[in-house]
Design a protein around this nucleic acid. Structure first.
Lengths: 345, 345
DNA sequence: AAAATTTTGAGGCACGCACTTCAAAATTCT
DNA sequence: AGAATTTTGAAGTGCGTGCCTCAAAATTTT
């Protein structure tokens, strides 16, 4: 602990030859300040490099923020992780006088999601939504924003909506990364590549697919992409799809799963002999995918960090609600590449 | 903004039928509280789920923290980035009432580093040091800690010292990751692999080398490692080393640089024909390495995020100084894998 | 029972700022 | 010039806690 005192509002007042009240008027943009006085006060603040104490300001403002997070119901391992991170962030949020309430909704159904958004209490100070890029959902988001509740989209975006921002990765880049790893890991062998997604109306899956296709067609012409299979992010469907691919196609060199359902993929791949096993690249490091990666059934996972995303969403909402600054670099969610050798723990 | 009031210390006092002073004694572990009273107060706190307001507590404690960061002098691109991040964290730190002073020292000289550590003002509330795993340095760290200044090591550790903790990546894992990528990217071709480090007395370089060796010898027996070359992290030496490797060895399939000097490596590789160019894996995404990666001269970079590391070090020191809690998951520095397709920007 | 000790209460000051009120001073308008 | 209006100062309260003092009450020891 140290006592090098930072300048206070009173110091600024004295330096500018005015009263506390006037400095307060300047700082908080209140009216009735002569241009000349305003100038003098600003100069004094500059000279002393005065920064209002956020602790004291927060205390005096007695602001408390309540946010609503709308998350997908279901058994997707990654989304479970997101929900857990939201729950686990309570302690961290307490330090910022904020709190989060969770709502679960079927995110595959646009009408249910739009309804849930409409049902969000307008008393909240902000909302984070795992969105669907769909007209009804966009409209519901816009209504919520119009009612004064700032919205950030989380993980899956609704770009045309009036949301404050999107917290998530660049999914096209994630898809390109998947393609580059898959292409290089398959070592120049020509053949076909199976492609799975959860749904073609999920923006993040579509973006990944776009980036994946783009790079394969440019750099790995000896690989031919098989028709996309939709799995609804369900383990069973993913498992069946992989099994079918392996059985039907002798020239199968690799599989890319842009969606969830990796537990099923792992099961299907585990039943194949090591020699017949295709290269596999998927997304998200979860309880469903960590095992297969460690055992060598999966070759690489392109991941995003749920904890970072949840905290980033909260920080954006807090910043919006309180007018506080943000560190853009800290809010950019990066793409993590995991192979067996750099898995955590 | 919302006004659902959280319970205050006064609420707890009333609920427990005692005075503010007594609740204060309980909360802050002051003496002279009867066991029974202590019990009653604890129950009341539990029942109201009372949490001391961190803003008010911070204000009342009027704690200000000054930390000293000891960074390597020189022209290493990554360390420049670290220094820039320290400088740039001022705004963020203001919100936590902390400040950082930077000192630059020749980190390759144990005596200079130890002397700089001894010269750290004991009035600091903590220090972060890019360490050297060397007896004099360890002893100097221990002296500083003994004098009441908590120390965290940053990026390069001194494991046997009494430092509070290490902020940096698992470098052995980073080395294994480099090996796995290098092995898979070279596509099964046999041949020799050139290996560069900055110095064999830098703990982080040695750890990377260890992990790299380990995995190559286990999984990529068709690759033979050439003798390690020390470059002192200098571009010129690295450039010359790469040029020599390429000229001397027709069977060279890959190069691994566990240290810095990537600007030089990029220059040397740029002069080689695309067909004669070895696979290259290095560390850190900086101004020196981003260009070659984008142009395809480099194949992969294993990186750590300087900004995260600086903030994590600061958080650890603040937590230590103030007794605040930390989120371990948030403080674990992860290994980033960059290939051309997932470069930021 | 008296003396010594421990426990508790009451109250207050401080932290730095937000926000208010009211009167005095300065400026602008008629 | 006087009246109307705008700008400024002085002073206060409150935010929730830390930390301090002093006296009163309760408990333990002699």
């Amino acid at each position: 602990m140290n006592d090098t005192q930072a300048p206070t509002l009173l110091d600024v007042a004295r330096a500018a030859g005015v009263s506390r009240a006037t400095v307060d008027r300047v700082i908080n943009g209140r009216p009735n300040v002569k241009a000349k006085t305003l100038q003098r006060v600003r100069e004094a603040m500059e000279r002393l490099s005065y920064r209002p104490d956020p602790l004291a300001a927060g205390l005096a403002r007695r602001a408390r923020y309540r946010f609503c997070f709308l998350l997908p119901a279901g058994t997707n391992a990654f989304m479970d992780e997101v929900a857990a991170q939201v729950a686990g962030s309570a302690a961290w949020l307490a330090g910022t006088r904020a709190s989060i309430e969770r709502r679960f909704v079927d995110v595959f159904d646009p009408f249910a999601l739009a309804g849930a958004i409409d049902a969000v209490d307008r008393g909240f100070d902000g909302a984070a939504i795992v969105a669907l890029d769909e007209p009804h959902v966009r409209a519901a988001v816009d209504r919520l924003v119009a009612d004064g509740v700032p919205v950030v989209t989380l993980i899956s975006d609704a770009p045309a909506s009036r949301r404050l921002g999107f917290v998530g990765v660049d999914n096209a880049a994630a898809g390109r990364t998947a393609a580059a790893l898959l292409g290089r890991f398959s070592g120049g062998r020509g053949g076909s590549v199976g492609v799975l997604v959860g749904s073609l109306s999920l923006r993040d899956h579509v973006d990944r697919l776009f980036g994946f296709r783009q790079l394969v067609e440019r750099d790995y012409r000896h690989l031919s992409l098989l028709p996309v299979i939709e799995t609804r992010d369900e383990d069973g469907e993913a498992e069946a799809a992989v099994a079918r691919l392996a059985a039907a196609d002798a020239g199968l060199v690799a599989i890319y799963n842009a969606g969830a359902g990796n537990r099923g993929v792992g099961r299907a791949l585990g039943r194949l002999g090591a020699d017949r096993r295709p290269v596999f690249v998927g997304h998200e490091l979860t309880s469903a995918s960590a095992g297969p990666l460690r055992e060598g059934l999966f070759d690489a996972l392109i991941a995003q960090n749920a904890g970072h995303e949840v905290r980033s969403a909260a920080r954006l909402l807090i910043a919006q609600a309180s007018g506080a600054p943000i560190i853009p670099e800290q809010e950019r969610i990066r793409i993590d590449v995991f192979i067996r050798e750099n898995m955590p723990d």
